[in-house]
């Protein structure tokens, strides 16, 4: 098993953060993991992306070129990374900010109105966690518990009070994608 994930969006949407949470959770579940950010000036205001690898074997290349899954938070990232997903791979689209459907018919695509869901939860900042919840629900790559266990490790103990909100965001994301699957079956 080797899952190669691209997570991409605007700087400030928390794409690096959910990448780290996913990586941390993978480590807690004794999987081999790596997280690699794009870095440099593009971090400042432009698009940001990171590569996460979760594998049963030692991680080879930490650079994700052909993703098995992609979490896409905005339109420019959709245009850039949609074509890189392998056949049979999974694409998670933040439909609040991406106003088009996928052009691919050889991958599984999930649309999650992450910003609207986050808004309903009263905090726009958790849109990334909504997307992560949807991803976990479909791939079962790690558990929500592991994500929450890693939360303070990634963000620091002083952010522990945000765990309930983030847990809710993960669950809402999962629920959203469950409803979508149910509707298509």
């Amino acid at each position: 098993m080797e899952e190669r994930i691209t997570i991409a969006g605007f700087g400030g949407q928390g794409v690096m953060a959910i990448g780290q949470l996913l990586t941390y959770a993978g480590m807690l579940e004794n999987k081999n993991v790596s997280w690699l950010p794009s870095y440099g000036p593009e971090m400042r205001g432009g698009t940001a992306n990171c590569s996460v690898v979760i594998s049963s074997e030692a991680v080879g290349s930490p650079v994700v070129v052909n993703a098995t899954s992609a979490i896409i938070m905005n339109k420019p990232s959709m245009d850039k990374f949609e074509p890189t997903i392998v056949e049979g791979g999974k694409l998670f689209v933040n439909s609040s900010l991406v106003d088009r459907k996928s052009n691919r018919d050889d991958i599984e695509v999930y649309y999650i109105p992450a910003n609207e869901i986050a808004n309903e939860l009263g905090n726009m900042k958790v849109a990334n966690m909504v997307m992560l919840g949807a991803y976990i629900e479909v791939t079962k790559m790690v558990s929500i518990e592991s994500i929450l266990e890693g939360f303070t490790k990634v963000f620091g103990e002083d952010k522990a009070h945000l765990i309930p909100l983030n847990k809710e965001a993960l669950e809402k994301g999962a629920e959203s994608v469950r409803n979508q699957i149910a509707a298509t079956v």
Binding site: T23, M27, V33, S34, W35, L36, P37, Y39, P62
Partner: peptide, 8 residues
């Protein structure tokens, strides 16, 4: 790359 990446 090795400077920027995270691993256990």
């Amino acid at each position: 790359m090795i400077g920027q990446m995270m691993e256990p």
